[in-house]
């Protein structure tokens, strides 16, 4: 987090999360999404964004919430050379985290939580703020599964289910 700016959003209505703005490409409305066979449960599927197939990560599921999030926005981020879209309930805006909260170190027992995607925990306006690590949101197994899905378009096409609003 070089600039100290972060994009605040709510993966679910009761959860407040933040992501460094350097990883954020854009926000958008949800697009048609196809499920990906063999992907973890927090991967809602894949969608074509800006001409590229992009995995859709349900951040609420990733953080341990039961069920899938009723996403109102997608947040497109870049992880290395790839793009990932986060399905969230609401995008609040860009904030400088140093202005609004004190960044705290992760407790050792929580470092492996959420597949290691949580970089730190903080408090914003009396509300818990989860600061995510973009590089760990999508594991290699997900990219592998996505790649296998693309290599088998017949079978993948057969499994793809277009969901409106996702």
């Amino acid at each position: 987090m070089t600039s100290g700016l972060a994009l605040l959003f709510r993966p679910q209505p009761a959860t407040l999360a933040a992501l460094p703005v350097e990883h954020v490409l854009e926000t958008m409305r949800p697009l048609p999404c196809e499920p990906v066979a063999g992907a973890p449960s927090f991967v809602a599927g894949a969608a074509v964004i800006r001409g590229y197939p992009t995995p859709i990560v349900d951040v609420g599921t990733l953080l341990g919430a039961p069920g899938h999030t009723q996403a109102a926005r997608w947040i497109s981020i870049k992880v290395a050379a790839r793009a990932v879209a986060l399905a969230v309930a609401e995008v609040i805006g860009v904030r400088r985290l140093a202005d609004v909260c004190a960044e705290g170190a992760m407790p050792p027992l929580l470092t492996s939580a959420a597949h290691g995607a949580v970089s730190s925990l903080s408090v914003l306006d009396g509300e818990l703020l989860v600061v995510l690590e973009a590089a760990r949101l999508v594991s290699d197994e997900v990219w592998t599964a996505l790649g296998e899905a693309r290599s088998k378009p017949e079978s993948g096409g057969a499994e793809v289910e277009v969901r409106d609003g996702r």
Binding site: L7, V21, E22, T27, V94
Partner: peptide, 26 residues
């Protein structure tokens, strides 16, 4: 809203030069 957030994000990526734009976008 989406465009403003995206503009803010873009302004944040633009560094110091995009700060004023970021304010406008916000």
């Amino acid at each position: 809203n989406i465009l403003a957030i995206n503009a803010t994000i873009e302004a944040a990526g633009a560094g110091e030069s995009g700060r004023r734009f970021s304010v406008v976008a916000d």
